[in-house]
Simulated assay, not measured.
Amino acid sequence: MSSIRLLVSLAAIHDMKIEQLDVANAYLNGTLEEKVFMRPPTNLANILESIIQKRGLSNVVGEKATRMLEDFRDGKQICHLQKSLYDLRQSGRSWHMMLDKVLRKLGAIPTNADPCVYCVGRGEDATMVVIYVDDILIMPRDSNRIKQFREKLCKEFEVKKLGNVGYCLGVEFEVEKSKITMHQRRYILDLLKRFGMENCNPISTPMDPQTKLVKPTTAEEVKNFPYRELIGGLTYLAITTRPDISHAVSSLGQFNNCHGKVHWTAANRVLRYLRCTLNYGLVYTNCPDPVRGYADADWANCAIDRRSYTG
Rank of each mutant, 00 (worst) to 15 (best):
C258S: 15
S246R: 06
S58Y: 02
V129M: 04
E34Y: 05
S178M: 04
T211R: 06
G163V: 13
L81N: 08
R55S: 12
M16E: 12
Y86I: 02
T218C: 07
L48T: 03
K17F: 10
G196S: 13
R292I: 14
I78L: 05
A295P: 07
N25P: 07
Q90G: 13
S9F: 03
H183G: 09
M207T: 08
S50D: 09
M182Y: 04
Q210W: 12
V171S: 00
K105E: 05
C258I: 15
G293S: 09
A26T: 00
N112L: 15
L162G: 15
H96K: 09
V60P: 13
R242Y: 08
L6C: 11
S251C: 10
G253Q: 11
Q254N: 10
N144Q: 08
N46D: 11
D87L: 01
H80N: 09
H259K: 14
P40S: 01
E172M: 10
M98Q: 10
V222G: 14
G260H: 03
Y236R: 14
A266W: 10
M98T: 02
H259S: 13
K105P: 00
L69R: 04
L169F: 09
E33A: 04
D142A: 04
R104F: 07
E70F: 06
G56Q: 02
L44R: 03
T42F: 14
Y187Q: 04
A24L: 08
L278G: 05
F195D: 04
T235H: 07
D135I: 06
R73C: 05
M197D: 03
N46Y: 14
L81K: 08
R292D: 13
E198N: 12
E176D: 12
V291T: 12
L103H: 01
Q148Y: 13
D190L: 07
T211V: 08
D296A: 03
S3D: 07
V270T: 05
S204I: 12
K160Y: 14
C276S: 12
M98N: 11
L48V: 10
L234I: 13
R275W: 13
L162M: 09
L189R: 03
C119G: 10
G92W: 04
P206V: 02
L48P: 06
H96W: 15
D87A: 04
I203M: 06
Q77N: 09
S3Q: 03
A238G: 09
V283E: 14
F255K: 13
Y294G: 02
N268Y: 05
Q184S: 08
N199S: 10
Q184W: 05
V23P: 05
E158V: 08
Y27G: 00
S246P: 01
D244V: 10
G253Y: 07
S50F: 15
K152C: 12
P216T: 06
